Amino acid sequence: MITSTANQKVKRLVTLKKKRKARDEEQIFLAEGLRMFREVPGDMLRELYVSEAFYEKERELVDRKAGEAGVFPEVFSEQVFSHVSDTRTPQGVLCVVRRREEMSCEELLRPDQEGRKPLLMVLDNLQDPGNLGTIVRTGEGAGVTGIFLSRDCVDLYNPKTIRSTMGSIYRMPCLYVDDLPELLREMKKKKIQTYAAHLEGRTDYDREDYTGGCAFLIGNEGNGLRREVAELADTYIRIPMEGEVESLNAAIAATVLMFEAGRQRRRK
C-alpha cells in the first residue's frame, strides 16, 4: 500500500489531473468514482488505483475488473487517495483510461453502424466542463450519433468534464475540428441540415423536421455562435420562452433540441 504523497506514481497522477498536456501526451484521461469504474471497458482500462477502505469493501469487483483488463490494482492510504482525487468526497476508485479511437469526420457524417442517419452536435467555443459533459451524456440518451467540437472548446478530457459524462465518454464519438465553417460546408454537400440555436431565430424548434441527417449548432455560453459559424447554418431556430427569460443554459438548450430530434425519429 502506498502511504506517501511523495511517491512517483502519486505525483504522476496529480500531474495528469492538473495538466491537459500531460494527458494528451499519453492519450489517456482519469475517470473517478464507482459508476465510472463499473462502466469502463476492459480494453480501455490502463491503470487502477483504489483507497484501502474501497478495496476492503469492493475487493471482488476490483479484482474482477482488474483481471479482465490485465492490470494490477494499486492501493492507496485514505490520505494519499484524497490527495490525487478531484472531488471533495472521494469514492475511493480512480482509473487511468485509454482514449477511444477517434472516428474520422467522414465516418461521423455517414449513417452509423446501426443505420441511423446522422444526428450531430456542433459545439463552438463551449467553455464550461459541466456543460460539455452534460451534452455528451444527454447526447447518448437522445440518440446523437456524434459530437464535433471547435479546437478552442474546453478540454473533453478535463476531469470535471469526464465526471459529468457519467460514463458516456466511453461510448459517444467526439471529434475536435480546426475549421468549423469548412465542416458545415461539408455537411451541406452531404445534405445534412444544420440548425443554429440563435436569439435571432424566427422558427420554433419543434416546428422543424429532424428525421433526416441533421446537426445542431450550440455556441459559447456568453457570446453564442461566432458569426462566421452561424452564417453557414441552414436555419436559425429558437426555444420559445415565457416571462422575462431570454435564453437557456447551453447544455439545457442542447438537451431540448436533442430530445425533440429523438422524439421525431422514434415516431417515424
Rank of each mutant, 00 (worst) to 15 (best):
L183E: 07
P159E: 09
I147R: 08
D178W: 14
K190A: 15
K160C: 07
D152K: 13
T194K: 11
Y157N: 09
V144Q: 02
R171E: 11
E182H: 13
E182G: 12
E200M: 14
Y157E: 09
D152Q: 13
I192F: 14
G143C: 07
Y170T: 05
T145N: 01
N158F: 06
T165P: 07
D178L: 15
C153E: 04
Y176V: 07
V144E: 02
Y157C: 06
G167C: 04
Y170D: 11
L180V: 01
E200G: 13
E186I: 05
S164L: 15
Y176C: 07
T165L: 11
I192L: 14
R171K: 15
P173N: 09
K188L: 13
T145D: 00
A196S: 12
P173R: 07
L156F: 01
V144R: 03
S168R: 00
D179Y: 14
L156N: 04
S150G: 09
L175D: 02
Y170Q: 09
D179A: 12
V154Y: 01
V177W: 06
K191C: 10
S150L: 00
I192R: 06
A196Y: 05
R185T: 09
C174N: 03
L149N: 08
D152A: 13
E200F: 15
M187K: 00
Y157P: 09
P173A: 08
L180D: 10
F148N: 00
T194I: 08
K160R: 12
Y176K: 11
D178C: 11
L175Y: 02
L156G: 04
N158M: 07
K191P: 05
I162Y: 06
A197D: 11
R151Y: 14
R185A: 12
K190N: 14
A197I: 15
A197R: 08
Y157K: 08
K160I: 07
H198Y: 12
T145K: 02
Y157W: 08
L180Q: 12
R171F: 15
K189T: 05
S168G: 02
I162E: 08
F148S: 03
G143L: 09
L149C: 10
D178T: 10
P181I: 01
L175V: 04
S168D: 00
H198G: 09
I147D: 05
K160H: 09
V177C: 04
Q193S: 14
D179M: 12
C174H: 02
N158C: 11
K190P: 10
P159R: 07
L149M: 14
L184F: 00
T145P: 02
N158R: 09
S168I: 02
G167H: 01
P173T: 05
R163Y: 04
A196M: 10
V154R: 01
R185G: 12
D155Y: 00
V154Q: 01
M166S: 15
G167I: 02
L149E: 06
C153R: 02
E186C: 08
A197C: 14
I162R: 06
F148M: 05
K191A: 13
